[in-house]
Simulated assay, not measured.
Amino acid sequence: MTESGLPTSEHLEHLDTDTIADLIENLLPATEAHSAREHVKACPECQQTYDALVQLSEDLAEEGREDIPMPADVAEHLDAVLVSESVLRASTVGVHSLAQIREEPRRHLPKLLGAAAGVVLIAAIGVGVVFATKDQANEGAANTDQSTPPTDAVTITTGNLAQQTQKWLEHTPNAILHGSAAEQSCAKTFATSRANATVRLVQPAKIDGRRATIIGLQGGSAREIQIFAVTGCDQPGGVASSFYDTSVTLRNR
């Protein structure tokens, strides 16, 4: 304990790597994500794990830009590591082979990242590896360009709001300001009541079947963005009323 009575980092109960990986992938509920993010800020050990996972995710994404074949001996080595209980704790994670990752990448990738942080799996192999998945191909076919939001209202649900806004914001260094002048003005007025009034995103949308506006505000760090779904901004002189909020962590800042 410090003289102020606050716990020092060695007295904090550290987050497991699975939770930190889920935080990075924006898979945690909003309340749990906020608590986890605050813990990481206060805990140097967890911050180090967080940074390592972010870097690993970026490295994997960079490797995935080109179609690099996976050598047979590398695939066999990865399969051997993945079945090791000491690496992935298969009984709880449920990943037993590369085939599962290829078939269900979004389900298993956060767990794989968490395990890889402990054994530095990719660095030890020392070769470029691509996880080419049917999921990514199907997603690309269903959505022509998810990295750029349309200027008109986008149809979305609260279930995938965090993931989609993260994609938009990671693909541009500039603010994304769509909608009418009235909608943008409403969003900026809404921002003035928040801790950080820097507007990063204004996007007209139809969320869970109702007309709304997605507002993104700069969070406590360059990577953190506070996301709000509000009604009322689509009308001239309207006042924003938030009905859903979450936060996302950008991986390329």
Rank of each mutant, 00 (worst) to 15 (best):
P7K: 12
A132M: 10
L23E: 04
T157Q: 11
G94L: 14
A197L: 08
C186M: 05
R89K: 13
V83P: 06
L113C: 05
T192N: 09
D145F: 13
S185D: 09
R107F: 04
L53S: 06
T2P: 01
I101D: 06
A117N: 08
H14K: 01
G140M: 02
E85W: 12
T158Y: 11
E103N: 11
Q48N: 00
D208G: 08
E170L: 14
A33G: 12
I122N: 06
P204M: 05
P105C: 09
T157I: 05
A162W: 01
E45G: 00
Q146F: 13
A137C: 00
A181G: 07
A117G: 00
V230I: 08
A90G: 15
Y244H: 15
A132Q: 15
E63R: 14
L88E: 04
A30G: 03
N143S: 07
G118N: 15
Q166M: 08
A175D: 11
D234A: 14
H11N: 07
H34Q: 10
N160P: 02
V120M: 10
R102D: 14
L27A: 14
L201T: 03
T2A: 09
G209Y: 05
A142D: 12
D51P: 00
A222F: 07
A205I: 06
H14I: 00
L88Q: 06
I125V: 14
S242K: 14
Q55A: 02
V95A: 15
E13R: 07
E103I: 06
S97Q: 15
I24L: 11
A182Y: 11
S247K: 04
A117C: 05
H178G: 04
T49R: 09
C186V: 01
D79Q: 13
D135I: 01
G159Y: 10
E76Q: 11
T246N: 03
R37L: 09
I176G: 00
Y50G: 02
P71F: 12
R194C: 09
V129N: 01
Q48W: 00
A240H: 05
S247N: 04
L113R: 10
F131Q: 08
A222Q: 10
G238Y: 10
I101H: 05
L88I: 15
H77M: 14
V81E: 13
S91W: 11
G238R: 09
G219P: 01
A181D: 10
L27D: 10
Q184F: 13
A80P: 08
S86Q: 13
A61K: 11
S9M: 00
D79F: 10
Q184I: 12
S4W: 11
T133H: 15
G126N: 02
P110E: 05
G126R: 03
N143D: 05
T213H: 06
L60P: 01
V239R: 14
L109D: 02
A153L: 10
L23N: 05
A197Q: 12
T92Y: 12
Q48E: 03
S9L: 00
Y50K: 02
A191K: 04
V129S: 03
V154D: 12
A52P: 01
V230Q: 09
D22P: 02
